[in-house]
Each structure stands twice: as C-alpha cells, then as structure tokens.
Design a binder for these strands. Structure first.
Lengths: 165, 165
DNA sequence: TATCTTAAGATGCATATACAAGTCAAGAGC
DNA sequence: GCTCTTGACTTGTATATGCATCTTAAGATA
C-alpha cells in the first residue's frame, strides 16, 4: 500500500548552516542592542563605526569586504550614519571610490557607546568563558572567509604573476 | 601636552559577539540562498517551513521560541508564506492561539527545494568538515539559548511555587 | 453574570540585508 | 582627442528583523 505520499524526509535540515548561524546571531545581537539602546546606535551601526574608525580613510567597497557586507547594504547604512552626522563620505576620487571617515560627532558617539558595549560584551564573554570565546570567535572569522571564498573563488593570488603581459 | 583628545580606545571591539555571529551568518546565508534561488524560497523561509513541518500544528509564539525569532517577525514572514499558499494559519482558538500547518503546496515546495538545500549544505559541510560542523552546530544552538536566557531570565522552574497567594 | 486582567497576536515604525539593474566617469585602446 | 569598456557606487525592489504599542477575547474574580 502506498505510504500516503511518502512523508517529506527532513533528516538533517536542523543542521542548516544558514539557520544555525542566524539563530545565534539574532539571540546575541539582542544582548548588545539592548545594552546600546541608550547610546542611540545599534550593534550593526557600532560595527560600522568601529570599522571606519580603524581603517579610515576607507573606500565603501573595501569596508564591505572587511565587514563582509554587500556594498548595497553599506550604501543604505551609511546614508543613515551620514544623516546623523557620524560619518563623512568623500566625493568620488581615484578609481571612482568614495572614502569614509568618522566625524568628531561620530567619534564622540562611539566614545559614549563604548562603556555600554564593553559591559554587554564582558557579560557575554563572562557567561561563556573568555578563552572559549576567543577560540570560537577566531573560527567564526575563518568560516566567514571560507564561505565568502566558496561563492567568490578568490583570484589566484598564489599563482605567479605573469611576467610578460 | 594634551595628547590630542586621546584617541578612542577600540581595543577588543573586533571581538564583538553580535558582529562576529552576524558576519558569518551573512556569508553562510548567501551560500544557501544562492542554491535555493531556483526553488523560489530563501533559506529563512526554508527554515520556517521546516520548523512548521516538524512541529505542526504549532502556535505562532511557540514557533518563535523554537526558532528564536521574535513573534512580530514571524507574523510578517508568515504573511508572505500564507500569501504564497505554503502555510495555513488557523483562527484563534484556545488560549487565543493561531496554529500553523503546512499546506500541500507548502510540502511540495519544500520537497522541491530539498535537493538544492542538501547540495548546498553538503558542500558547506564538506568544506569545513562533518564532525567539526556537528560540534560547532551544537555549540551554536547552546549559545543561542544561553543568550536568550541572559535577556529573559527563565522563570525559576526549580523554585517551589508559592503555596499562598 | 459583569467586570477585570492578561496573554497571543497584529501594527506602526525603523533598520538590516542583498540581488538585479542602472549610472557615470576614469582609464584603455584607437 | 574620441570612443569603449569597466568598475565603484547607487537605486529599485523585496525580504528579515525587532521594539513599542495596540487589540481583543479568554480566563479569572467579585
């Protein structure tokens, strides 16, 4: 007898990488966002401001690579930060790039938010263990790049550059 | 002499849990979404359909707890899945709950998307290692709950319920 | 039973995310 | 110098995400 349209075989679906990373990201992001609430910025904006502060002046595309965020996403996010006066976006220059820098207001906002971020972060790390988080974080960073390279095979930087044109 | 408004001390900011989990989630999600593209659903919708299929009939709030997604997020996501005819949402019943079930069309969509999902998943797992992913996935699941409990201290199920009002 | 409280969900609002396609000028080739 | 290509960014469109707040009827209580 036909086993009633043979039920879906969902074996293994609970191991979906997308789902598992996203679920944890949602839960952890709430911790940081709750702590940052009074600072007026979210953890996502905090990450962008930090990224700019550390590498400025930096082109939009380059920052997108570093943060592993699509450039179109960054365009919208930067629009907000610019409107708030936290970052400055240069005009197109060499290579048609626009360079980002953090403004004094951006610096002070970042400075004001740092204590709240540190408090949330320390609570998080204290809960799961400092060494453990150090290792896991390294793995998360490595995996992000592994995933990026799976979609965008890196141009063979290892292959010897052609001497002759 | 004043060291020019003492540069921001960004030590440790690169270890932000929110940033690190989100960055990897973005990168990995792209892998699965690219593979699912032809199926007409995204990895996020795939996860919801799987969640419903595995636990139906399930109330919206309960599914939100299981997937660690805010109920308001689920409301919007379900609106789309319902409009596509992939899930059915009951009327309010006991406890004012609405129960979710997957429709035949939802089942066939899920069935059609499974091969693409498996292909993407196997490639991902093969790249990083099966056993490694098994361990890491368990940790991700555990951490999601740890983070949830940090924000929403679980009602002390161990403490004796007060006998007197 | 009439009210009162409360819990499950829905809405308003705002941000996050990215694919596909568009813009537009810098640099290449003639 | 004049096209032509290309690459960096932007826009159109759509989904994902969640806080604050609202709605509403179920279950509690007088």
């Amino acid at each position: 007898m036909k086993e009633n349209s043979a039920k879906l075989d969902l074996t293994g679906t609970g191991h979906c990488g997308s789902f598992n990373f996203r679920r944890t990201a949602r839960a952890v992001t709430r911790l940081y966002d709750a702590a940052l609430q009074e600072s007026g910025i979210r953890s996502t904006q905090f990450a962008i401001l930090v990224g700019i502060a550390k590498t400025q002046p930096v082109a939009i595309g380059k920052l997108g690579e570093v943060l592993v965020v699509d450039a179109t996403t960054l365009t919208r996010s930067l629009r907000l930060l610019k409107k708030e006066g936290l970052v400055a976006i240069s005009n197109r220059s060499t290579m048609r790039q626009r360079f980002l820098t953090i403004t004094p207001k951006g610096e002070s906002t970042l400075a004001r938010s740092l204590p709240a971020w540190r408090a949330a972060h320390e609570r998080f790390v204290a809960t799961i263990g400092t060494a453990y988080w150090g290792d896991l974080r390294n793995e998360l960073e490595r995996l992000a790049h592994v995933a990026v390279d799976l979609e965008n095979p890196p141009k063979e930087t290892s292959a010897p550059a052609p001497i002759h044109s």
